[in-house]
Computed example of a mutant assay.
Amino acid sequence: MNQYPLIQKESGESQPFLPSKLKASLYRAGAESILIDEITREIESWLTDGTTTKQIYRRAFNLLRKKRRSMAARYSLKKAIMDLGPSGYPFEHFIGHIFRFKGFDVEVGQTVNGKCVTHEVDVIASDNENQHLVECKYHNSQGKFSSVQVPLYIRSRVNDIIETRQALPEYKGLRFHGWVVTNTRFTSDAMDYGRCSGLNLMSWDYPEKDSLKALIEKYHAFPVTTLTQLTKAHKQHLLNKGIVLCSELYSHREELDALQIPSAKQRKIMMELEELCDGQTIINMT
């Protein structure tokens, strides 16, 4: 007999509730051990068989939000990345910012020539020695995996571009790297093919130390969709204006005036932004 109730995952699969997973997610959100134990006990006493992971997340989020909004924002990070849709275009800019934090010059949404055909490249990140050609695969559902067909297709596209660029004098001496970045996960076959073919893969939790989740925390690259005091319409307005990161909004706080948000609430939003940005700001929004 299971010690804990069976919960239902996004995929429809059922598994026993694991307190350790909840505690780990609360810890990553910045909660202290006393609060983590308090929330875990509350969730355990409330759980019944068939409770969904989405319901558990919502309850834990609301409990965190009562204590400190910036912790709730961190806890909701995976959902916030999903909320960068529906077009996927803001996700491309978000990934562009990740590469900027890594020290590269970045272009987003470029049409480039290959040997055989032209290609749309979501992100091109360059320095004096390397150029990264990045394909972004955005999904608005956690249950969707990128299969091996994705890196197979991208590998051929990247090869077509590299073959042309290696022959051009302006790219002389550059090393080229292909990437596929997704906000969900890859199948095991996709990861095996990436490692074998030399195509870099990044997903929500892969590779472990350089996953999307790890890099967001490392660079404090939280999207505006994490903010707990903005409505969905507010967030969409900011994304339409090209403001993707909290640090961009922190540097351009006049955008809160454009949203007609009262001064008292603006001050609370700025406090949440300051905690999330931790001093990291971006002046150039291009």
Rank of each mutant, 00 (worst) to 15 (best):
D83Y: 03
S197R: 10
S211T: 02
F91I: 04
R28S: 10
I216C: 05
R59C: 11
L63M: 09
K213I: 00
S247H: 05
L63R: 10
N2T: 13
G242S: 01
I56Y: 02
A258W: 14
L249A: 09
A60H: 01
G194Q: 03
Q229G: 09
L215V: 02
Q260C: 12
Q229S: 13
H220I: 00
D160C: 05
K144A: 02
K218G: 02
H97R: 15
Y171G: 02
E170L: 13
Q149P: 01
I283W: 12
I282S: 10
E129S: 12
I56D: 04
L199H: 03
V106C: 04
G12V: 06
C196S: 14
I39E: 02
M71K: 12
S146T: 09
L47M: 08
P19A: 09
S247G: 01
S247R: 14
M82T: 12
V134S: 01
D192V: 11
R267Y: 09
V148C: 01
F145D: 05
E38S: 11
V148P: 01
R175I: 10
S197V: 12
F94H: 01
L47C: 08
Y193P: 03
K78V: 00
T225R: 04
C277H: 11
D189R: 09
K241A: 13
N140Q: 01
T48D: 00
I98Y: 06
Q236I: 11
V244R: 00
K79L: 09
A264L: 15
C277V: 00
V123N: 01
Y4A: 08
V158L: 01
K213P: 02
L238G: 02
L256K: 03
L273I: 08
I269R: 02
N284V: 12
S211G: 06
L230P: 00
Q166V: 15
I34R: 14
L77S: 04
T51G: 03
S251N: 09
Q149W: 08
T184W: 04
K66T: 06
Q260S: 15
K23A: 15
G12L: 09
Y206H: 11
G242I: 06
R155H: 13
I283D: 13
D192A: 14
M82K: 13
E129Y: 12
E248W: 10
S87I: 04
K144P: 02
M191K: 15
T164S: 11
V106N: 02
I282C: 08
L174S: 03
S14V: 12
V123T: 04
K268G: 04
H237M: 08
T228W: 00
K268L: 15
T231N: 10
H252V: 07
L201E: 03
T111L: 14
C136T: 10
V224L: 07
P16F: 06
F101A: 10
P16V: 07
G143P: 03
H132A: 01
K102G: 06
G242N: 05
I124D: 00
K265V: 14
D37P: 04
M285S: 14
L47K: 02
F94R: 07
R165A: 05
V108A: 06
Y171L: 07
